[in-house]
Amino acid sequence: MKHNIIAAHKVIGTIVGIIIFIVLFKYLAVQIGDTSDNVTLAHAWLSLITAIFGPVVGAVTAFIGHATSDALTNNGTAWWTWVIADGLFGLFIGLITKRLGVLIGKLTTRKLVLFNIWQLVANLVVWLIVAPLGDYWVYNLSLGVAFKEGLILVVVNFLTIAIVGTGLLKIYQHYFVE
């Protein structure tokens, strides 16, 4: 019975996570200059979702959330290299929060510093390796353009997660974790 309750919580958490991710990713985003990149709180939200529900929920939330947002924006077309990269990012953030036990016990400064170091590494891997190389191989996008957009996302996502994501983790831990 306990396993069914946990599974139900994860399904509901995933659905709610995806809906909020889409709203933040598509409707509460600010475009960065002349790029196709946006400042969004979706990845800060993702850090909380993965800390609560784990890496699989994080991967599914980011993948479906990004694909749906792209489809709503681009006449039903998703930019699949970035959708896959976002799914991997959700998985990586989930593995990080699980490994560090971010919401287990006290949320210490050490846990938050390690979380932010590792989320920077995840951002670097996903947005400076996976997404740009995918764009180059699949869409024949120039490596210079792909890496420029990837670097912008590394900086934006890192800062958003470090500031807002860390704040969300602190608030959740304070009010919902014993």
Rank of each mutant, 00 (worst) to 15 (best):
S47P: 06
G150Y: 01
L24C: 03
V156T: 15
I22V: 12
V57A: 03
D37Y: 10
S142N: 11
G150E: 12
K170H: 04
L107A: 10
A78E: 14
V130C: 02
F92H: 09
G76E: 01
W127F: 12
T40M: 01
Y175V: 05
T108Q: 09
L124N: 12
Y175F: 00
L100T: 06
A7V: 14
L28V: 13
L128R: 06
G87F: 12
V154T: 13
V23L: 11
W45P: 05
A7N: 12
N38P: 08
A78T: 12
A67T: 15
V56L: 11
A8Q: 05
L168R: 01
V130G: 05
E149W: 06
V164G: 10
N38E: 11
I163Q: 06
L153R: 13
N74S: 11
T108I: 07
L103S: 01
G150R: 07
H9L: 10
G58Q: 04
T14N: 09
G144A: 00
I161G: 04
L100S: 03
L88C: 14
F25V: 04
V121R: 01
L72S: 01
L103W: 02
I84F: 13
A8T: 15
I5L: 07
A78S: 15
N157R: 02
K148E: 11
A62T: 14
R110P: 00
I5S: 10
V138M: 10
H174K: 13
Y139G: 01
I152N: 14
H3T: 10
A8V: 07
T35S: 14
L141M: 10
W79L: 10
G65V: 03
F53A: 05
G105I: 06
W137K: 11
P132L: 04
D37M: 05
Y136P: 02
L46S: 15
N140H: 15
I171K: 06
I96L: 01
T166M: 02
L107W: 13
G167D: 12
L159K: 01
A42T: 04
K111A: 03
H174W: 08
T40R: 08
L100K: 01
L128A: 02
I52C: 03
R110F: 10
F176T: 10
L151S: 07
I18T: 15
N75C: 08
Q173S: 13
N123P: 08
D34V: 15
F147V: 11
T108R: 04
D135G: 11
F53C: 11
S47H: 07
Q31A: 13
H9Y: 14
K10G: 03
Y172N: 02
K98G: 08
A44D: 09
Y172S: 06
K2I: 00
V154I: 09
V39K: 03
L120H: 13
T109M: 05
S47Y: 08
Q119P: 06
T109V: 08
L151C: 04
L153E: 15
H3W: 10
I5G: 00
N116Q: 10
V154W: 06
I22Y: 07
V156D: 15
G94C: 05
A7M: 15
G105D: 03
V130Y: 13
V30L: 08
G134R: 07
I20R: 04
G150A: 04
L46Q: 15
V130A: 07
G33P: 04
N157F: 02
K170N: 08
N157P: 03
S36P: 09
W118L: 12
Q173Y: 11
K170P: 00
G165A: 07
A7H: 14
Q119Y: 04
F92Q: 07
I117W: 02
T81A: 07
I32P: 00
E149V: 05
